[in-house]
Design a protein around this nucleic acid. Structure first.
Length: 154
RNA sequence: UAAGCAGGUCGCCUUAUCGCUGAUUUCAAUCUUUUGGAACCAGAGGAAAGUCCGGACACCAUAGUGCAGUAUAGCGGGUAACGCCCGUCCGUCGUGAGGCGAGGACAAGUGCAACAGAGAGAAGGUACAGGUAAUGCUGUAGUGAAAGCAGGUAAACUCUAUACGGUGCAACGCCAUGUAAAUCAGUGUUCGAGGGCUGCACGCUCAAGCUGAAGGGUAGGCGGUUAGAGUUAUUGAGCAAUCAAUAACCUAGAUAAAUGAUAAGGAAGUCUAUAUAUUAAUAUAGGCUACAGAAUCCGGCUUAUGGCCUGCUUUUUUA
RNA sequence: UGGCCUAUGGUGUAAUUGGCAACACAGCUGGUUUUGGUCCAGUCGUUCUAGGUUCGAGUCCUAGUAGGCCAA
């Protein structure tokens, strides 16, 4: 048992190191600066922004110039109509934030523009972490391809 | 063993990696008070919920007077206060442990009472029996929730006693940004408009603007903001709620709203499957683990909810 | 965060001061008609839920549930 445990630990640590070696330049942080807070910005985003849906998540985005030099500002919502309990809403928002945090490198590998994002949860049932992360990855890829196309057109 | 009653208690734990918020220390940059990095420490509840009561705190007169309005209601105590808690009497429900009770006044006035009944509130007088000179004069019956009685009903108006000024941290104070001290109409300056967020009147106070139309700007930050009717332990007073003394401790402060994700291991309970056993149980594998998220802060109440423990009641069975 | 309001057949509304829950439309069943429509008759209710006051509650009181509205 003890030996098994030790070997497992070693393997995990090695994997972790590899992971870091690969994505050493990527940061998984999600500080306050990158959160979308201003009411003005949010109104503008919903008025003018474009959207991509990958059920059960919808992404609304808009290309804006910020005053500070953050790459993007991100907000996350779950509607009160579908989830009445505050605990469930919080849980969904946390999961989505986690999904964004771990996969945001997919967007910013090839892109230098500044964006405002808003993730909406459209489903009516409680999600699980792997589901959210997979849908997030798909969304990100969709976004990346669409956005690069648009750049070429412009 | 089954059903039930009352009370207490806990609200999964550990490690690793990545991440969030705050305090402290330190390093670097800098417009000298901000930004970034590192270390270490801390980071949701018993109900944080409902917003049903009561306070603290802030502003409006150190919160005034009268009416109106609202709430409470045996008696005694506790408390900062309460519609809360404790004790106790009475009523009521239950076989019982126990539960529940807005439990003052109808001998101030007003209203209400379907059906039934002779008769439901102010007079009249049904049946039977008794009695008288005579009479509802007396008793009983029947109707109904209530009937010859100072009737019933106040969770009907009302009266009595007591309490309550209003608005709420989106209170309030400061800074920054921005425009419009603009236009039109009405009204007003000691003969006082209007405000002080009270339904009305009085009183006090500020007092040169105020109201409407159409239109413009902002919608950011800091303080308030967490050391308090605080938590734990011991001793004493009291039937108890609770109070007093002593000692130790510091324990969340977010703001599109932090306290999360992944992996591994463990504890308790429970369900399913397999094997042993075939009364109890044991082992292995897998699954499940409730209600629910601080938002100015406290004291209660109410509602939601997973276990565990203690005491008691009733019935049955065994000894 | 604070304040306020509403709930009656499937839908929209009534019900005076507590005394038999009413109306219209829709649905369903039957009749009339050769058939359909019109018309006629019938049917469809835990008065949001749970307690209490009362002889008696849609109405009065208390607590909840659901829905809605207002205030920078």
């Amino acid at each position: 048992m003890l030996r098994d445990f030790l070997t497992m630990m070693i393997v995990i640590s090695i994997i972790c190191r590899f992971y870091f070696y690969f994505y050493g330049s990527m940061s998984y942080k999600f500080p306050t600066k990158e959160k979308l807070k201003s009411k003005k910005l949010i109104d503008k985003l919903f008025a003018e922004g474009r959207s991509i849906t990958q059920y059960p998540i919808r992404l609304v985005y808009l290309q804006i110039k910020f005053e500070d030099d953050t790459k993007c500002k991100v907000g996350v919502t779950a509607s009160k109509r579908n989830f009445k309990s505050a605990v469930k809403r919080n849980r969904i928002k946390r999961l989505m934030r986690e999904g964004y945090r771990l996969n945001k490198h997919l967007i910013f590998n090839n892109n230098e523009n500044q964006f405002a994002f808003m993730f909406l949860y459209l489903g009516k049932e409680m999600p699980t972490q792997p589901k959210i992360s997979t849908t997030m990855i798909r969304l990100m890829k969709k976004f990346a391809t669409e956005n690069s196309n648009r750049d070429i057109k412009e």
